[in-house]
């Protein structure tokens, strides 16, 4: 699966959050594409990038309840009517659309009765409307609030959650989480320190066994349920 991240931030080098995420995005088949960093917006090239991706993520800090101006400019030039739906090709149909947004206010304030008194989903409505028009599959928003206040372990968890958001199969179920970790463990174990393959293989095989035991238990339960219905 190919993931394209359309990143918008006018001062990306000064953004601790975006630099952190950029390190996390160095994964196989993930393209980091910073719109303010483009010398000029080549519409054909941008549309080709979108066409080639299976999952498209818009990533930005929240400025006055919206994305930065750079993203809007990019949208207005690249997402032409013909490209989105007008030529009947539905170029983005069935691709997955996600949003990674960072906020300076705590997430709990983005709800009715919170100091912001508006939800993140309400704020994202215009982007969702584009995705719907393009017949894309919406993923839930990935919100990073007050990154600089996160403790080290929370930042670590955010990094891995972000990587899963970029590459894990949708939806985020335990089954899909297990599959992601299984695959990634196998890919990453070569880079682990002070360990040998036997130890890692035992861990991986045990993890897979646990996954299969869970799946077996689920089948047993459905069999019992079937019996109860009869």
């Amino acid at each position: 699966m190919k993931t394209l991240i359309i990143v918008s931030h006018p001062e990306i080098n000064n953004s601790q959050t975006q630099q952190f995420l950029m390190q996390g995005a160095k994964l196989f088949d993930v393209t980091w594409h910073h719109v303010e960093g483009l010398k000029k917006i080549d519409v054909d090239n941008e549309q080709k990038l979108l066409r080639d991706a299976d999952r498209i993520i818009f990533q930005f800090p929240l400025y006055w309840y919206a994305a930065p101006a750079g993203l809007k400019d990019w949208e207005d030039k690249v997402l032409t009517r013909n490209f989105i739906y007008g030529d009947g090709n539905d170029n983005l149909r069935d691709k997955e659309f996600g949003i990674v947004v960072s906020t300076g206010m705590p997430l709990k304030e983005f709800r009715r009765g919170g100091t912001e008194n508006i939800t993140i989903d309400q704020i994202m409505a215009p982007l969702r409307a584009i995705a719907d028009r393009a017949k894309m599959q919406n993923l839930p928003v990935f919100v990073i609030s007050q990154f600089q206040y996160l403790k080290e372990e929370q930042q670590m968890q955010t990094l891995i959650d972000y990587q899963r958001y970029l590459t894990q199969k949708y939806p985020d179920t335990l089954t899909n989480r297990q599959e992601w970790f299984e695959q990634e463990f196998a890919d990453r174990l070569k880079t682990f320190d002070e360990t040998n393959c036997t130890e890692c293989e035992t861990i991986l095989n045990t993890f897979i066994q646990q996954k299969e035991d869970l799946s077996q238990l689920k089948s047993t339960i459905s069999l019992i349920k079937q019996g109860e219905d009869e």
Binding site: G24, L174, T191, D193
Partner: peptide, 22 residues
């Protein structure tokens, strides 16, 4: 705990959480 690389520590700690979930 043995990992020097931040990303490996983060990954294994997150995987441990999935094991707890299992």
């Amino acid at each position: 705990d043995k990992q020097k690389a931040y990303e490996n520590r983060a990954f294994l700690t997150a995987m441990k959480k999935v094991v707890e979930e299992q």
